[in-house]
Write a protein that binds this DNA or RNA. Structure first.
Lengths: 195, 195
DNA sequence: GTCTATAGGCAGATAGAC
DNA sequence: GTCTATCTGCCTATAGAC
């Protein structure tokens, strides 16, 4: 993991890549070490060398996913767009997940929440909390500069956006219908546009 | 199943009751025949007598769930309330699911969609289709009588409501926070209220 | 309709050689 | 860091007695 490895091709990273896709498409209870091993052409024992337990693998998965999500939020902030455009860019993160025919990693894990070990549970809640905090900030900016009009508190509107987008992903995926998602997302954001 | 059984206490019915709760809380891949058998105090073999395969059990589960959902929609219609009140009653079906600390059965299965056998997949899509059709009707009534104001088509607004409520359930459940759901649901419906 | 017994497979995980 | 081999336990499902 350290040193000058070929960054994206070491076994640990490739394991995370495959496991991430499997969780996002099949759920944490819908794949096994054997699935990953077969796809990478290694044995299950090798995987256990890098991630001692499935719980540890899951924790690492969320951590990397949240970190990348955080980076994308930082890029949106750095772009300096107006609040409505920031919200659209936020929704487009979700759209890109669906175009990959995946569910949001943490949305999927939220469904399985009751079956998951404690370290994973905590990480899921932190992920949603971060999104909600970032959205609340954007919504407050928009209210301040007059580009957005909120009906409830920034916190509550932020929560409605997160859950609205997660639900749009959840339902659109069985239909394999990106338009279905786009329409729901647009309707979600439209109501915040200033009159 | 037929005859004059004590309606709600025969093994088939009790199996459906327990399995339904397990799917709604843990997912289809998160429980086993052994879990149900232990809770009912019978053996796994007995369960297989009533539901030969887990797939058959799942199909029966959705069928009963959809039928009961259909009945509740019928009751709302029979109540003769105005469209905005009908929407609130619809959202309250979801709230009652969350109060039971459950996810919508079909929302849970939507997450696991890719891992599910074909008969179950079909039943999930039919469930969402029915809700969307019913909602589109209510929304059109509301637009006609002036009690609701739609921004998009009735079909699209209906879809946004279904996915918005499913997402609100999905995210609120890990937080075990009914208020979180209520707030998101209210915000979802408020924007349809006539000016 | 429920039971005992069991088949056959896959799960997550570990020991120890290389 | 990857392998072979193996453990233990659970999974869905079936056969056949009662």
């Amino acid at each position: 993991m350290a040193r000058a490895q070929a960054a994206n091709t070491d076994t640990a990273t490739r394991t995370l890549d495959v496991a991430e896709r499997l969780v996002q498409t099949r759920g944490f209870n819908g794949f096994s070490y054997a699935d990953i091993a077969a796809e990478l052409g290694v044995t299950k024992a090798s995987l256990h060398y890098h991630f001692a337990s499935k719980t540890e693998l899951g924790r690492a998965l969320i951590e990397r996913y949240a970190e990348r999500f955080r980076e994308r939020l930082g890029q949106i902030d750095a772009g300096g767009a107006a609040p409505p455009a920031k919200l659209a860019a936020y929704a487009d993160i979700y759209a890109s997940v669906l175009r990959d025919r995946r569910m949001c990693l943490c949305g999927m894990l939220a469904a399985e929440y009751e079956t998951l070990p404690e370290p994973i549970r905590e990480a899921i809640l932190r992920f949603f909390d971060e999104s909600e905090t970032w959205l609340a900030d954007v919504l407050e900016q928009g209210e301040a500069d007059g580009s957005l009009r909120l009906q409830g508190s920034a916190r509550d509107e932020g929560r409605a956006i997160v859950s609205g987008l997660e639900g749009a992903l959840l339902v659109a995926r069985p239909y394999a219908d990106v338009d279905r998602f786009e329409t729901a997302a647009a309707s979600l954001l439209k109501r915040l546009a200033a009159a």
